[in-house]
Amino acid sequence: MSVINSTVELRAKAQQKALDLRVSHAKQGLVWALGSGITWGMNGIILGIALAMAPFVGVVSLYAAPLVGATLNEGGGSLLLFFYNLFSGKFLEYGRTLRTKPGMLVCLGALCAGPIAMSGYLVGINMAGPMYTLAITTAFPAVGAIFAAIFLKEKIMSRVWFGIILTVVGAIVVGYAPPTGNFPHFYLGLIFATLATFGWAAEGVIATYGMDMVDPEVSSGIREATSFVVYLVAIIPLFGALSLFGRVFVHASLWWLLLAGVISGMSYLCYYKGLNMTGAARTTGLNITYALWGVFFGWLIMHSPMTPTLIAGSVIITLGAVLIVANPKELINIREV
């Protein structure tokens, strides 16, 4: 009898240990997802410093400066992740991953988010103004959660839905600027902003699907490299930004852009690990806390003033994030499969 009891006891202990391990895995995923928001907030501040320096000051084109910034941002990120994967013994995984369909999906996700969504965002700002474009594009975690529920069958509780919506509302409040100017192509601008929203939301879902079978660290490296190459050979020439791109290399802003790129690489590493470990819906919801971290780092580094709007938006984002991460035990099985 005592042998049976000890066997049952041993089994119960093993089951508890396995459960603890799975909860710990889910919690780690949430930490990575939050890390992606913190580093992205920091990235925005560094990028802002770089774009306020020569040769960007006084550039007439609305697109050239942010696109050149984005290109070098992706370039710095892909370099960091290449060396990260090289030193963690995953260099050969690049080629292997690119020869598989999941690897191609990671590249497709990169195209959706990098060149397509970013270009849509900038054209949207030009045609419809920043306020409406920001409001539409900030909704990408909510659209991503809908995609994740449909295509990945992710389990999303009503509390988490509410948390995602709160983070979106908070990010809009933080970025609010009263509408100004005359926009003759206003509705076309809204379409481009919507394209950006769908692009960023699609990346999360497509990459998560691919990373079921390939390493997230290698995937984030491929994502950054793909985006960098497409920016360099297609987007920069298309928007007439080649001359500005060349001029950056003789200015100190290059170093700031590369620093921003390194932080962007860290952010994508966190984002892809979060997507893989905790799902697309929660990760995109926690990623958008970058608006909150941007306020914090802006205050810390740039001594930017804390307005009541910024504080209100930050509080709303924090509440949303708390609702998203409230119960990691729900994440033991991410999907209803």
Partner: peptide, 11 residues
Amino acid sequence: LHLHSMQASGL
């Protein structure tokens, strides 16, 4: 990590 990630994703 691969095993636990694939377990969480239902594979």
